[in-house]
Design a protein around this nucleic acid. Structure first.
Lengths: 216, 216
DNA sequence: CTCATGCGTTAGAACTTATAACGAACACGA
DNA sequence: TCGTGTTCGTTATAAGTTCTAACGCATGAG
């Protein structure tokens, strides 16, 4: 799924088993959530008993961390692929929703409830800025007519660490953030089930937000 | 915290112990998250051993369900109190943020990652419509100038189960939903730590969204 | 062919939730 | 005031979990 470049047969076998472990982990997470992930259950399903998994992952936390990393990568890849296919902000918005609906628990692994003690590994922030770079590209490409900068935009102009070296103007920074927060707002509420029984169609609400944020 | 109306001394003692259990549960959740909540640890802290807690809660799930119920109630109460104090949409928006920041894990208990199998108890939906009623009141009171209805608004006009018997016009329904989704968008990302290290001030972003959604 | 490294096993410690069975304390009716 | 039945807290136990330790076997490198 990620590293087919194996030199020795030992490493090749090792990578293969790691992938099988992660495959079963994803199945388990999809049906029962990340909190119910059990190393023992995975081991039994694979056919080896209990502590053997510790040869491949230092523990439950490292396995989950690896899954989080893969989830980030997955989102970044679909995002970038979609952008390279010529998609604009609207296309990215619907790619985000499709990615989330494809596996809600994967979405929650990245954007759901954080464990207070847990600190995300360094490279996830790198992947995040990769995603933001794609988003900023799209925002800078579809510039709305110039307007006097809002107080928020002047604030963002002075605090643009997250944008890295990207040459996007403050208005694009603001649009990228609005894109992110407004779409996640609809998405997280929908996936958490807070719209069930309300009657309306969440997809329509999402589409409306996507259009609004893509600059009608 | 909820039912001081105890007739017999037995029931009074029982309610008291239940509250103490919940108190320790909240402390534990605040520091380690809901997934790390341990009945055993609570029992030891209270001074009684293990299985005694099962006299008061049928199990871990029932305790957490009770905490979720209390969290809903807490939000509905602060929301309604704030509205009765004369707050408009902007006031409600900042009440929501204050409530969330006051105890992030309580926020996540309600709006965070759902467990796939879990079904919320019936009365939480009643509390939700209570919150929505307050929100719809505020939206209907601060009506923006009339405009041609968007496709989403006509859809909402025909699917307004969640609004109950509230006489809010479609434009108010749309505003209430935008209020909800846009503010939760900023809030959930902020509380989950996705803005840390980005440089800007989440409070400013939230305020900007609140102003936008309250009708600038 | 030798031998160190890696892999999978079982055993066990320290946890967890949850049930069962027992004894004691308590409130209430006679 | 005196039974008496309900309730409470206890210990014991079962069935899970993560994770470490120690032991053999197989594999691949030299």
């Amino acid at each position: 799924m990620s590293k087919p470049e194996a030199s020795t047969p030992r490493e090749r076998y090792r990578a293969q088993v790691r992938e099988e472990i992660k495959k079963h982990a994803w199945e388990q997470i999809a049906t029962a959530g990340a909190s119910a992930l059990s190393l023992n259950a995975i081991a039994k399903r694979i056919g080896m008993s209990g502590p053997a998994l510790y040869r491949y992952f230092a523990g439950r936390d490292e396995l989950i961390t690896e899954l989080i990393r893969d989830a980030y990568r997955s989102l970044a890849d679909t995002f970038r692929a979609r952008a390279e296919a010529g998609a604009g902000l609207d296309g990215l918005a619907h790619a985000l929703r499709a990615w989330a609906l494809d596996d809600p628990q994967r979405y929650f692994l990245v954007y759901g409830t954080p464990v207070p003690g847990y600190h995300a590994p360094e490279d996830t922030t790198r992947i995040t800025s990769e995603i933001m770079a794609v988003l900023l590209d799209a925002c800078a490409a579809e510039q709305p007519p110039a307007a006097p900068p809002s107080p928020l935009e002047t604030h963002l102009a002075g605090h643009r660490d997250w944008a890295g070296q990207h040459p996007a103007p403050p208005s694009a920074l603001r649009r990228a953030l609005a894109f992110w927060t407004r779409l996640h707002g609809v998405l997280s509420l929908e996936l958490a089930g807070h719209f069930t029984g309300m009657g309306f169609d969440p997809a329509r609400l999402y589409t409306a937000e996507a259009e609004a944020v893509a600059g009608h």
